[in-house]
């Protein structure tokens, strides 16, 4: 369910009719696919009303739809644009917090006051392309409630020009229909993304799936290939032939992927094992930092007799740190 927020009833009329929305309160309308909330003008009004309704019902996304004035020749009156970033303007000055809606599009300034002078509009034109009165408040409420947020603006007028308000009023009906048709297009269902972990013979938990997906992406970047082609770099059939549990097969696959991404992983692991093994055989265990960041080495053993203790101390006396230091310093050409 989407929550559509619009500032005025006039703008929302098209959406209400197009989607057959039922009036629940004077400002709130419900339908099967979406609900529409009339927030009123001003960022704080918009934030308060939107938060109130987000607290009442679960929504998948909030879409702020409405009109805006343009500050830039690149964004034309009569067109609808996706909004990229939203800034808040108080007393003509930008405030710190900004919100993102899309990667590309127009930057929108939500202003406390109407921008009626060209001088003010000019000063703001370096900060954003559009001016509205509510998007920032809606974005603030959506982000605070952890709901995805998108914003689209229909350009109604050139900000800072005389008569902008009249133009907005006169075109309200047309604009409202245009917004409704646009909304219909954007909320149509999109195909869901492919699940790469549906591999026969492998079992993924939440965390191994996450790890797998991340490594798929990294390998696709490294090898400059599509994510769908990464699995071909690994011999999955060979792994399937091994008589082991699906979750262990997944572990082996993840290990192979890690080795592909980290050119030193295998060398370091085998070098470390080689250093540890003789001591482990004597019952002395060595623990090192798994990220290799710390040079600290923890040694542990147990002894039952004085003799055993002395034997182990003697073995430790002969322990050389150099092989570990060489590994840690990426120095692989020495034994």
């Amino acid at each position: 369910m989407h929550l559509i927020t619009m500032a005025h009833l006039g703008e929302a009329q098209g959406v209400i009719e197009y989607f057959n929305l039922k009036r629940i309160t004077p400002h709130y309308f419900e339908g099967e696919l979406l609900c529409c909330l009339i927030t009123g003008e001003g960022p704080f009004e918009a934030a308060t009303t939107t938060s109130h309704y987000l607290g009442q019902k679960k929504f998948n996304s909030v879409i702020n739809l409405g009109i805006a004035g343009t500050l830039s020749d690149d964004f034309k009156v009569g067109e609808i644009y996706g909004v990229r970033s939203i800034y808040l303007i108080i007393d003509g000055k930008p405030q710190f917090k900004s919100f993102k809606s899309f990667e590309k599009g127009a930057d929108c300034l939500t202003s406390f006051e109407r921008i009626v002078s060209s001088q003010k509009a000019n000063k703001l034109s370096g900060i954003g392309h559009l001016v509205d009165r509510e998007a920032w408040g809606v974005a603030m409420a959506a982000k605070t409630c952890g709901v995805s947020f998108k914003c689209f603006k229909l350009i109604s007028d050139v900000a800072g020009t005389i008569g902008a308000c009249e133009i907005v009023r006169d075109n309200a009906q047309n604009g409202s229909l245009q917004l409704a048709q646009f909304l219909q297009n954007i909320i149509e269902d999109r195909p869901s993304e492919k699940n790469h972990t549906e591999l026969q013979g492998f079992h993924f938990t939440v965390s191994t799936r996450h790890k797998f997906e991340q490594m798929l992406k990294k390998i696709s970047i490294r090898e400059a290939i599509e994510i769908d082609d990464v699995a071909e770099l690994f011999n999955l059939d060979e792994l399937r032939e091994q008589k082991i549990l699906p979750k262990d097969r997944t572990r082996l696959l993840l290990n192979q992927m890690e080795n592909k991404l980290d050119p030193l992983k295998e060398k370091l692991e085998s070098g470390l094992q080689k250093w540890k093994t003789p001591l482990e055989r004597e019952g002395i265990f060595i623990q090192t930092d798994s990220t290799w960041e710390s040079d600290e080495v923890k040694l542990s053993f147990s002894a039952k007799t004085q003799l055993e203790l002395e034997q182990k101390i003697e073995i430790l006396r002969n322990l050389k740190f150099k092989p570990f230091e060489n590994l840690r310093n990426g120095n692989f050409n020495v034994e």
């Binding site: 970047i221 490294r222 120095n331």
Partner: peptide
């Protein structure tokens, strides 16, 4: 595309062996 870790000074870097190598 190469694993990085949070290093001794909280900066994000390759592992110590990797950066020295």
């Amino acid at each position: 595309s190469t694993p990085m870790i949070k290093s001794f000074d909280n900066k994000v870097r390759y592992t110590h062996p990797m950066r020295m190598w």
